Amino acid sequence: MMKLNWAILGPGTIAAEFAEAVNEMNGIIYAVGSRTLEKAEQFAKKYHVEKAYGDYEEMLQDEKIDVVYISTPHSNHYEYIIQSLENNKHVLCEKAITVNSKQLDEIVRLAEEKQLIVAEAMTIYHMPLFKQLREVVQSGKIGTLKMVTVSFGSCKENDASNRFFNKDLAGGALLDIGTYALSFTRFFLTSQPHEIITTVKEFETGVDEQSGIVLKNGDNEMAVITLTMRAKMPKLGVVAGDLGYITVENFPRAQKATITYLDGSQEKIEAGDTAKALHYEIEDMEKYIQNKSSKETLDLSLDVMDIMTEVRNKWGIVYPFE
């Protein structure tokens, strides 16, 4: 593991999990930043962090920081990534990495200009199982890829004040759980979809409560994605070819999958460890920094953001700050 000085921006629940992962890997969490110094100091004490800052801007000016992990709500990701890059820090940012394609395109341009690494902390891109499954698909083991289907439903409380439904915070299913479903989809498709058909049911606040998305690319591969924030559905991904199909249950951090062939026979595949999902993100980020490129996953993030932006355009849902 490279001895990089990590900084955590936004010490919430997922940041605590990330800090535990860095510590378990004998990494260095040099700094943590919060909107209040008290919260930063509490986090620093619990997770053995050297420096605590009660101001994000002040923390990002610390020249000892090599890489920043951003775990604030996605409505703030763009501004904090830009500030991090302007202060010459590499960035690993939670999903969804930005709110729209324009934001992400600008981030990529700035990162390239400053020769810095930006990557999305999307578990699907980093779990060993998915890397192995893509090799299975590319090998032709399930034949010619035809269809990807993904469902993801999370039954959030019917509360208009909840952040999940807050339009000012870029709420809605698409950018919260849909980013997982679309990342799964794009990970396996041979090329970027060019045809998008979609419909949406809005929540009372004007964000997307549930939707259906159909995609088709130039290789005649199709995908069907179903999302909802007010009903429970399995986190289920299926990758189908003309010789068989792969089923991945609880796919965001999966370690197991099943291949079912046309004759009904099955093959189990297991790789990685669900409990180490963030370890794999950290390992990959440090590899990107060492190799001076995050292209293998950043290109996927760009494609997924393009899809989500086009989907929202078709819905006519625009956030107030856009």
Results as ranks from 00 to 15, higher is better:
L4S: 10
W6I: 08
G12N: 04
G12L: 06
I14G: 01
A15G: 09
E20V: 01
M25F: 03
N26R: 07
I28W: 01
V32M: 08
V32Q: 10
G33T: 07
L37I: 09
E38G: 01
K39N: 15
A44P: 11
A44C: 12
K46V: 14
H48L: 08
K51P: 01
Y53E: 07
Y53V: 04
Y53T: 06
D55L: 12
Y56C: 07
E57Y: 14
K64V: 10
D66G: 02
D66E: 03
D66H: 05
D66N: 12
Y69K: 00
T72E: 06
P73T: 05
P73S: 06
H74W: 14
S75E: 01
I81Y: 00
I82T: 11
I82Q: 09
I82H: 03
E86N: 14
E94F: 01
E94V: 02
A96C: 11
T98M: 10
N100H: 10
E106N: 15
I107H: 05
R109Y: 03
E112D: 15
K114M: 08
Q115L: 02
I117A: 05
T123A: 08
Y125L: 13
Q138C: 04
K141S: 05
I142M: 12
I142S: 09
L145A: 09
V150R: 02
V150H: 01
S154V: 12
N158H: 12
F164K: 07
F165P: 02
K167E: 02
K167H: 05
D168S: 14
A170H: 12
A173Q: 06
L174E: 08
G178D: 12
F184E: 05
T185K: 03
F188G: 07
T190C: 11
T190Y: 15
Q192V: 08
H194A: 11
I197K: 15
T198D: 02
V200F: 10
K201F: 03
E204F: 03
V207Q: 08
D208P: 05
K216A: 14
G218S: 13
N220Q: 14
M222P: 00
M222H: 10
V224R: 04
V224W: 01
V224M: 07
I225N: 03
I225S: 04
T228R: 01
K232L: 09
L236P: 00
V238S: 12
V239I: 15
A240Q: 13
D242W: 06
G244N: 10
Y245P: 00
I246E: 04
N250E: 14
F251G: 05
F251K: 05
R253T: 15
A254M: 13
A257F: 13
T260E: 14
Q266S: 11
K268F: 11
I269G: 09
I269Y: 12
D273T: 06
D284C: 03
Y288G: 08
L300H: 13
D303G: 03
D303V: 12
T309H: 02
T309M: 02
I317Y: 00
V318E: 06
F321N: 09
